[in-house]
Design a protein around this nucleic acid. Structure first.
Lengths: 129, 129
DNA sequence: CTTGACCTTCCACCGCACTGGAAGGTCAAG
DNA sequence: CTTGACCTTCCAGTGCGGTGGAAGGTCAAG
């Protein structure tokens, strides 16, 4: 299958597929006599895996590593579990940070909700931030 | 005050101060005869404002706009309130998204917690993701 | 007078995941 | 034979908030 077909089938673009190849996420496919990339249908599974990994918030570098474990013939289950686990912890930290920030910003906003411009110090920028 | 002093006083770097000037966050300061930047002490307030804005998760572009309103002689309170308000909504969305993602990733992780590599389809990448 | 810390400008680069565009080759339909 | 869709490579740019480094000028202390 040609790159355009694969792009359409996987819901991405030809640009992205070439980029993935260059980034080591997709193996270099066979070529036709005239140099066109000729993908195996199984590449679609690989792309779906990449998409699921991205949906879980993994980076392409992390996904690439899993794929390489797989390509080396090993089952990447353990590696995947570790990645997902550290991702959960990272999400917990991010959520907590954002919630704390939300508190702070809400307080600032409420203080600024009924602004009294006359009370502002003209030498300061804004007393509500 | 010279750029190094201001950097130290504000807890940033000379690089960043020059960058802020180029980015329109700091006005071009006076220069000494030999070309050194010579800042007014009030610049420190401005930098603190920038830092508070960043801490609230505002972008430099947003902060710059507030500063420009201020520089034009107006009180930016109203503008600041709108920014903070939209930031709160943005944070709410981000938090909700991350929480949903955390659910999904946790489920995937738990499914992978006791992996059974033998049950894996060797043609797929990993049945746990 | 020299040393070392400080300052200047300018240009390029970081990560991340692409995206755009130029210049040229290939293929199938009409 | 031409047209237009598709493909190739290569180089460069996006956004964000800086950071690194080179080449050169300035200043105060010893």
């Amino acid at each position: 299958m040609r790159i355009g077909e694969l792009a359409q089938a996987s819901g991405t673009t030809t640009k992205t597929l070439r980029y993935y190849e260059q980034a080591g996420l997709l193996p270099a496919p066979e070529r036709t006599i005239t140099g066109y990339r000729d993908y195996e249908p199984a590449t679609l599974q690989r792309l779906n895996f990449i998409r699921r990994g991205q949906a879980a918030g993994l980076t392409l570098a992390q996904i690439r590593e899993v794929l390489h474990v797989r390509d080396a013939g090993a089952a990447p289950c353990h590696h995947v579990r570790e990645l997902l686990d550290s991702r959960v912890h990272q999400l917990d930290r991010q959520i907590a940070d954002l919630q704390a920030l939300r508190e702070t910003v809400t307080e600032l906003r409420d203080a600024a909700a009924e602004p009294d411009p006359g009370a502002c110090d003209p030498t300061a920028v804004c007393r509500y931030l």
